[in-house]
Design a protein around this nucleic acid. Structure first.
Lengths: 198, 198
DNA sequence: GAATTACTTGACACCGTGTCAATTGACACA
DNA sequence: TGTGTCAATTGACACGGTGTCAAGTAATTC
């Protein structure tokens, strides 16, 4: 059921993403999604076994639409650690606002639903891999700032890139995505890149 | 009702804090608190109008117990901006683990309860005041790093000190409070304190 | 014309919060 | 000895949202 790819299934996913985006991930119920899809509430359960299942599918769907792999390509192709780091942050910083609605819904579902927690943790683990890769690249260049072990640097980079930090700066403080990306890049570079006395 | 200070009321508050602490703020229901207080569920509602009301009262109660004002005194008495900044971070970093359970519960309640959101925002605004004061002190010393306006620096400091960042580093990554405080202090200093070419 | 598929309708169980009304037991004061 | 009051108890219930179940419908296919 959740593996098929019917027309209706896609409509549900589209509505879900649209509504979550619109409402910042908050207060969107199964019934609302059904209505938006021009379908009965129960029909949604014909395609997704639970709200969490739907949310998880929605993130996957969105990742496909946004072509995450393509977006990450530049960072992966970087020739230096510094470049890799800044391209990764750029990529991530522009990605967050696009997945924020769905992500927020999933983050909130975490509180009560074990499966949602696992799904979100999984995504964050993937993000962490990106951080680790950037730190490793820096290390390979012998450009990792002194005082850091690679795991600790990965922890620190990962933590500063998490969604709530973005949320605070953009949504609460009103920073633009551009400002956010600039600041996180600066912060990461001043933190993790060895200072060469030029 | 919520202003009185009966024996039972205190027992409820104690149980609430204890249970939230124990369970990391998750999955503690009104009935659980009642049971823990040796009281019926309804009796809790005799002292607190709602779960949110109870949570808010619990944070206040905890602040009293922890004597927050006293803890903040050293930072307030600092004679330089740098000192103020680092003492504030030290204070905050040691405070978070003690209020984490209650804070987490309040943060989670935010999602569905307007009043909880307001209460938490209020606390975060207070924390922000501390940040602003530290940045202002730095500025007064002409030690605020170039490139920062005071509001932007306040935003950035505030955001990096938010609970989810602490949560990621300590709970998810396993850093100790000491490590967290050291790192946040370093991070804040390297970010906001002007570098004097010594 | 019978079976299959996708969907609808409506009822219902479960959970946790919050409300209500009737009752109990203790203490106070007269 | 009663009367009033106060804190708390008991049990029932409403509400909102998720998830389940069973019966029915309408279109497609063989």
């Amino acid at each position: 059921m959740s593996s098929e790819n019917t027309e209706t299934r896609s409509r549900i996913l589209e509505s879900t993403v649209r509504m979550l985006e619109e409402h910042g991930g908050k207060g969107v119920r199964m019934g609302d999604i059904a209505k938006e899809s021009g379908i009965s509430r129960q029909a949604v359960y014909l395609h997704f076994t639970s709200r969490t299942d739907l949310l998880v599918a929605a993130t996957r769907y969105l990742d496909e639409v946004l072509d995450v792999d393509k977006r990450l390509a530049p960072s992966r192709a970087a020739t230096s650690g510094i470049e890799r780091l800044s391209l990764y942050i750029d990529c991530w910083g522009n990605y967050i606002p696009e997945i924020y609605g769905v992500g927020k819904a999933l983050m909130m579902a975490r509180d009560t639903d074990e499966a949602a927690a696992a799904a979100w943790d999984d995504r964050m683990a993937a993000m962490r891999d990106g951080c680790r890769a950037a730190i490793d690249a820096l290390h390979a260049d012998k450009m990792l700032a002194p005082g850091w072990t690679r795991p600790k640097a990965t922890d620190a980079l990962w933590a500063m890139l998490l969604v709530p930090h973005w949320e605070a700066l953009t949504i609460e403080c009103g920073w633009s995505t551009k400002q956010y990306v600039r600041w996180m890049t600066t912060l990461a570079e001043q933190t993790f890149v060895r200072r060469t006395g030029s």
